[in-house]
Amino acid sequence: PEETEEMNEEEMEEEEGVLRWKEGLQQKAAEAFLRHQEAAPNLRKLVYGAVLEAGNSEDEEEELGGLFRVSRPQKSRKVQADAVDCSRFQPDTSHNWDLEEMLDTIRDCFVTGKWEDGQDAA
């Protein structure tokens, strides 16, 4: 059925010649959909997907001559496993709250900022 739809679209365009914006509409939609799909589950993958990958890094300890092991305590995952148990959010240091532009990014979070249509300061 998809093919016939495309055929129809192409025929229509050839006939009328004006509806150029309709070109590849389906493809455009598909691309937008894929882009959206890719962006959305990224965070989900970060949260729920990483565990599977991390399991493989278990036995990465190299052996030297079969007798000694290279101990690398600074390996990220191991360090994280023994890091400090603290719920505090580490602030983003790249934000400079002395700058006017930065202050402007949060103006509308306050009642003194701009209100959406349909909302009232009552």
């Binding site: 962006a39 990224n42 990014t105 949060i106 509308d108 979070c109 900022g113």
Partner: peptide, 17 residues
């Protein structure tokens, strides 16, 4: 498992990240 959806701010919105 949670459903996790990122909400990006609109262009003219000044409500942070």
């Amino acid at each position: 498992m949670f459903k996790i959806e990122v909400q990006k701010p609109l262009e003219d919105e000044r409500k942070g990240g």
